[in-house]
Simulated assay, not measured.
Amino acid sequence: MMKAVKLSALVAVAALATGCASQSDFDKLKADVDSLKPQVSAAAADAASAKAAAAEASAKASAAESAANRAAQYAQDTNSKLDRMFKRSQHK
């Protein structure tokens, strides 16, 4: 029982100490939020643009990797053919 009374007194003191927000506080906060909305929209647009650019770069990197793998395979095939030709020329 005493704990409840002490807790209630503590809550009452805290509520009185903090006070209530006035309408002007709410209006200022609303104005601040409204001023941030265009910045948030711009940031979202920049993020979308960056995401699109990253996807395009990833696609180009994949294409370049594929081309490099094909070139490496062609080089390996060519080296194999040259080795066979050299071995044949040594047999004669």
Rank of each mutant, 00 (worst) to 15 (best):
residue 11 V to A: 15
residue 41 S to D: 13
residue 1 M to H: 14
residue 64 A to Q: 15
residue 31 A to S: 08
residue 40 V to H: 01
residue 78 T to C: 09
residue 69 N to E: 12
residue 50 A to G: 07
residue 79 N to W: 04
residue 42 A to K: 11
residue 50 A to P: 06
residue 58 S to A: 12
residue 31 A to Y: 03
residue 4 A to Y: 15
residue 28 K to R: 12
residue 86 F to M: 08
residue 58 S to H: 07
residue 85 M to K: 11
residue 7 L to A: 15
residue 10 L to G: 04
residue 68 A to D: 13
residue 2 M to S: 12
residue 22 S to T: 14
residue 23 Q to A: 14
residue 42 A to H: 05
residue 59 A to R: 15
residue 6 K to W: 10
residue 22 S to G: 04
residue 2 M to R: 09
residue 28 K to I: 01
residue 83 D to A: 10
residue 43 A to S: 05
residue 86 F to S: 09
residue 53 A to H: 07
residue 84 R to W: 06
residue 91 H to K: 08
residue 87 K to I: 05
residue 71 A to K: 14
residue 26 F to G: 01
residue 19 G to P: 02
residue 23 Q to R: 11
residue 6 K to A: 14
residue 51 K to S: 04
residue 45 A to W: 01
residue 73 Q to I: 04
residue 37 K to L: 04
residue 15 A to G: 04
residue 21 A to L: 02
residue 47 A to V: 09
residue 49 S to G: 08
residue 34 D to F: 03
residue 84 R to I: 01
residue 20 C to G: 01
residue 57 A to T: 02
residue 39 Q to L: 02
residue 76 Q to F: 05
residue 84 R to F: 07
residue 16 L to F: 14
residue 75 A to K: 10
residue 89 S to Y: 10
residue 84 R to C: 00
residue 90 Q to T: 08
residue 49 S to H: 11
residue 91 H to R: 10
residue 88 R to L: 06
residue 50 A to K: 15
residue 42 A to D: 09
residue 27 D to R: 06
residue 42 A to T: 04
residue 62 S to L: 08
residue 73 Q to G: 01
residue 35 S to H: 02
residue 34 D to G: 00
residue 37 K to P: 00
residue 79 N to E: 09
residue 75 A to Y: 05
residue 85 M to F: 10
residue 56 E to R: 03
residue 39 Q to R: 01
residue 11 V to C: 09
residue 49 S to K: 14
residue 59 A to I: 03
residue 55 A to M: 06
residue 77 D to I: 03
residue 64 A to D: 15
residue 74 Y to M: 02
residue 48 A to V: 02
residue 19 G to S: 05
residue 11 V to S: 13
residue 54 A to W: 03
residue 29 L to I: 03
residue 59 A to V: 06
residue 53 A to P: 01
residue 56 E to W: 01
residue 82 L to C: 00
residue 82 L to W: 04
residue 91 H to A: 08
residue 61 A to E: 10
residue 68 A to P: 02
residue 13 V to N: 12
residue 46 D to G: 00
residue 28 K to V: 02
residue 1 M to D: 14
residue 43 A to W: 01
residue 25 D to L: 03
residue 53 A to K: 13
residue 29 L to G: 09
residue 17 A to E: 12
residue 91 H to I: 00
residue 16 L to Y: 14
residue 33 V to K: 07
residue 31 A to H: 01
residue 17 A to L: 12
residue 70 R to E: 13
residue 13 V to I: 14
residue 9 A to I: 13
residue 76 Q to N: 13
residue 51 K to Y: 00
residue 61 A to L: 11
residue 87 K to Q: 09
residue 79 N to A: 12
residue 14 A to K: 13
residue 55 A to S: 12
residue 36 L to G: 00
residue 15 A to F: 08
residue 52 A to D: 10
residue 66 S to E: 15
residue 14 A to H: 06
residue 4 A to F: 15
residue 83 D to R: 13
residue 75 A to W: 01
residue 32 D to M: 12
residue 41 S to Q: 10
residue 50 A to R: 15
residue 78 T to Y: 14
residue 50 A to W: 11
residue 29 L to Q: 14
residue 64 A to T: 09
residue 31 A to I: 01
residue 34 D to P: 00
residue 36 L to S: 01
residue 25 D to H: 04
residue 26 F to L: 03
residue 29 L to R: 10
residue 51 K to R: 05
residue 75 A to R: 11
residue 43 A to L: 04
residue 31 A to T: 04
residue 28 K to Y: 11
residue 60 K to Q: 15
residue 68 A to Y: 11
